[in-house]
């Protein structure tokens, strides 16, 4: 099965610091590939390079068989990439419904419609309400007033509105309580198999519960890759990341 995402020998330096060091990894269709590693390992940097917010110094990113070089973030999203942000990027004055409706609208095509009240348009609000799912009772609440957990959920609903082929999840459980984490794990489990996912996450229980494959990133390099069991047993990972005797 050919990969939906293929990262080939990508390098990114910031001055003297190497954030991504000849990194190669792939994501197969329907697979959930988790990326773990200590803080500063360059996980978010990879996501930002996949999105086109940061341009790699060298190497190639192939998505859906197509090289992504030169494509802006918005163009990559239209090719079928979706993402959630580690630090939620929401529009403070817009309601939860506004966000998802806007994403539905963007996915449907251009937005050069100057007339007609968009908020009353059932073609947008209908699908948006469905995507909000468990968040639907909070549809009319402005993002600024949503709780942290609700924001994380909203991030996911927005990304799903774009009907992505590959979802880049940047620490979706960060800062969530136990109950909320369990909810998020369930949500992602429900998506498994339908959408390929690259999951960056610190919550090891969640990662081990969800991932088909785990890669360990240290100083921008991939030091190990394999199933949950293989990673847990890997001595390099123990010393470099999990800390000796910790796992």
């Amino acid at each position: 099965m050919s990969a939906i995402l293929d990262i080939r020998a990508v390098v990114k330096r910031f001055g003297g610091l190497i954030a991504t060091d000849h990194l190669s990894l792939d994501v197969k269709p329907g697979e959930l590939h988790a990326l773990i590693g200590p803080n500063g390992a360059g996980k978010t940097t990879i996501i930002n390079q996949l999105m086109g917010e940061i341009i790699p110094d060298s190497g190639e990113i192939i998505f859906g068989g197509e090289p992504m070089a030169g494509l802006k973030p918005a163009a990559r999203v239209r090719k079928g990439l979706g993402r959630t942000f580690q630090i939620t990027q929401l529009l403070p004055d817009y309601t939860a419904l506004d966000h998802v409706a806007l994403a539905v609208q963007a996915h449907a095509g251009h937005s050069f419609h100057f007339f007609g009240a968009a908020r009353a348009d059932r073609r947008l609000t209908g699908p948006a309400m469905a995507l909000l799912d468990g968040l639907a009772p909070r549809a009319g609440v402005k993002a600024a007033s949503l709780s942290h957990g609700e924001r994380k959920q909203l991030e996911l609903a927005i990304a799903l509105a774009g009907e992505p082929r590959l979802l880049l999840l940047d620490e979706p459980m960060a800062g969530l309580g136990q109950v909320e984490t369990a909810q998020m794990v369930d949500l992602l489990k429900g998506l498994k198999g339908q959408i390929a996912m690259l999951l960056v996450e610190h919550d090891m229980d969640a990662v081990f519960a969800l991932a088909d494959r785990i890669s360990v990133l240290v100083y921008g390099r991939c030091i190990a890759s394999g199933s949950a069991a293989a990673i847990q047993a890997n001595p390099d990972v123990k010393t470099a990341y999990l800390g000796e005797g910790d796992a």
Binding site: A74, Q89, L90, P92, D93, L102, A103, S111
Partner: peptide, 15 residues
């Protein structure tokens, strides 16, 4: 209005 509040978010939904 979305662009005013967060251009990065707008790019991330494909605008």
């Amino acid at each position: 209005g979305g662009i005013r509040q967060g251009e990065r978010r707008m790019a991330a939904i494909g605008v």
